[in-house]
């Protein structure tokens, strides 16, 4: 089965293209007998996967996009729309502005698809990184970060979602990040949660937790540094999903 050999980010663009075609990710016409049998095999594999509730493995699309494949771009837009929209809704108030930035994110992914390096993280994490960067930049640039009252900020601190169980995303990068997160001190965890889940600034976290700003910055730095070192070890190699 191609997926086993070619589902990861280390496949060549042509391998990925062949995998995508035989895996029937997009509409495909005029399939040969061989491809039809591969497609049937893929379908049964998917059924088996559904029964075992195993996480889906999706081939990266960015290597294809770097080659100018517009159909892959169309699929990428669909694949990550929910993720990007979810980040947008948490960080931005204005839906029209969120839509504009979302479009810019996809254009950036089209233009710089070649910069995706599967050895440093999954495609999903790469897309989330570009999205977070764009939204954060826009909020900073327009000084339109949602204004929160002290009561709201304190409420965030006392009502943080419980993440004690497992990573919410089955993506390899997310699972590694979650494992690293669980090794952090409780203060570091609280600072990172308030920042990532609620989008609070360091100043807001300082108020929410009644901690000096310098302490918050130290927790953020050490916590993220630890997650980073587990995600991208010294050799800089991580095989992503």
């Amino acid at each position: 089965m191609n997926e086993a050999r070619c589902g990861g980010p280390l496949c060549s663009a042509s391998e990925v293209r062949e995998h995508r075609r035989s895996g029937g990710v997009g509409p495909y016409h005029g399939l040969s007998r061989t491809r039809l049998s591969k497609r049937a095999a893929t379908r049964s594999h998917r059924n088996a996967r559904a029964l075992t509730n195993a996480p889906a493995i999706e081939s990266p699309l960015l290597p294809l996009i770097a080659e100018g494949d517009q159909e892959a771009m169309r699929q990428l837009i669909d694949r990550y729309a929910g993720l990007i929209w979810s980040i947008a809704r948490r960080l931005m108030r204005d839906d029209a502005e969120a839509e504009n930035v979302m479009q810019e994110i996809y254009v950036e992914l089209w233009k710089h698809a070649g910069r995706f390096d599967g050895s440093k993280g999954s495609e999903k994490a790469f897309v989330a990184m570009i999205a977070r960067r764009r939204f954060i930049d826009r909020i900073r640039h327009q000084a339109r970060r949602p204004v929160r009252t002290t009561d709201q900020i304190e409420a965030y601190a006392t009502a943080m979602p419980d993440t004690a169980g497992e990573s919410l995303d089955k993506n390899e990068s997310a699972k590694k990040a979650f494992a690293a997160f669980n090794e952090l001190s409780s203060d570091q965890q609280r600072v990172l949660k308030l920042s990532i889940q609620q989008g609070l600034t360091h100043e807001e976290i300082s108020r929410a937790l009644s901690l000096p700003l310098g302490t918050v910055k130290t927790h953020a730095r050490r916590g993220l540094h630890r997650v980073r070192s587990l995600l991208v070890p010294a050799a800089g190699v991580e095989v992503a999903s």
Partner: peptide
């Protein structure tokens, strides 16, 4: 990238 991976791990998208 680390912040993005945490985003995936800690937020339900």
């Amino acid at each position: 990238l680390a912040a993005a991976a945490l985003e995936l791990a800690l937020v339900d998208h």
